[in-house]
Design a protein around this nucleic acid. Structure first.
Lengths: 226, 226
DNA sequence: CCGATATTCTAAGTATCCTTAGATTGATAG
DNA sequence: CTATCAATCTAAGGATACTTAGAATATCGG
């Protein structure tokens, strides 16, 4: 059937086009990766580019797109421009898209399995239960992200030892206590590397998949500062 | 800074690419419109094409994309293929994207204002409060969508009078009672037209912007059947 | 003011996607 | 079996987006 012009079609097209601008912002893998990195806190262009392993120019171009869709905003501080998510709804969008993709796309499930089924990682960890155990000191919750990301927001009772320093700071981890390590989220490899290192040194360590964005979107509390 | 190859980059690229498939599915205005229509219940290709005012061929191509992203699925019944959302999470995604766009994009806000500030539409209506008023019979909640969409899912206590029949069925609406009309959602014009008609005939009628997808994603109850 | 650093702007080639037209498949009715 | 209808597949032109390179802008320290 050939389309028939009805009143209101122009305005409808305009409305859907506007929503599609948000969609266009999240249809590129690199932009999604930048959003995930920004879920950990604000970063300048150079930090973002290294984290996503792309050129500064390309990062700048993608950030421009994200800014046009009003998902991120920039703040100048001296020579640097620091980008951040406009608000936590954007982090929720990222978590929702990732969750939808995980549940639906078999290729992703297969790739995740490669990431996960190495040592450590038992059943998915329940947030509230972990919180209670950490409060009672039964487990050590370990945040292996860079220190500035820990300061921006971290899980309650978590201790910060960035992955890069872990090898030299093993003494800070009580020998008998089980360790639950987390990082930026399910796609981040830092917690996995930390668990590998710890188990090689004879510690009992498991990886928790969620990062602060997933944690928050589940309605669980976060802490910030030292 | 030039990107430096780290271990795990290939698998990371793969992961973000998979999530971007969901993003690609929602970066086209027409695909978004199809998703919104499917939030009202299952439809065949021809119905979808007319509702979105595009050719059957184009609708078929877009549906193929949506199917590839596992957001919709098809079911053959005789000569027709009926499409539906894979589950209500997809409707939640649509509501989330629309909400993000509304809050962020000024052009969309301006367009919405044109749609809304005509007669009717006071303050945004509170769902729970409306439910209580409808239960007590203080207002008539009117569903002006086609009858099959009403049967699939509708607001509790709502009465179905499709927009196309409204003119001939005015007698069914008690003269004194205020009417709250709703349709497919904020981008749909049917409720607005119904309110225009009713107010011209001297009834007290306002439009409610939300549709069943928005209603459900707020955690409010729905009814189905006659 | 000058040089150095961080970031963006502009331009261009390449790749990808949108949209339409024509041919094709699948199911049904006679 | 054949005609018909619904929907899809294939192919192709035009538009749009991704990515990189080179030039330009803004800030800071001297």
């Amino acid at each position: 059937m050939v389309a028939m012009k009805k009143p209101g079609r122009e305005i409808k097209n305009l409305l859907y086009e506007q929503v599609a601008r948000i969609g266009k912002a999240v249809c590129s893998p690199k932009r999604l990766e930048l959003i995930e990195i920004l879920c950990q806190g604000e970063k300048n262009v150079d930090e973002l580019a290294s984290a996503a392993e792309i050129s500064v120019k390309l990062a700048s171009a993608h950030l421009k797109e994200l800014k046009a869709a009003r998902l991120v905003e920039g703040r100048r501080e001296g020579k640097n421009i620091f980008y951040r998510l406009v608000d936590t709804q954007v982090a929720d969008l990222w978590v929702m898209l990732r969750t939808l993709a995980e549940e639906r796309l078999l290729e992703l499930q297969a790739a995740m399995r490669d990431l996960v089924t190495r040592p450590g990682e038992l059943a998915p960890i329940d947030g509230k239960q972990l919180l209670a155990q950490a409060k009672r000191g039964e487990v050590l919750v370990l945040d292996v992200r860079p220190a500035d990301e820990y300061e921006t927001a971290h899980l309650p009772y978590a201790r910060s030892i960035p992955l890069s320093e872990l090898k030299n700071r093993l003494a800070e981890i009580p020998a008998g206590k089980p360790v639950v390590a987390y990082c930026r989220g399910p796609f981040c490899l830092m917690a996995k590397e930390a668990v590998d290192l710890l188990t090689r040194r004879g510690r009992q360590a498991v990886r928790m998949e969620v990062g602060v964005a997933e944690w928050r979107s589940q309605g669980l509390p976060l802490t910030s500062g030292e």
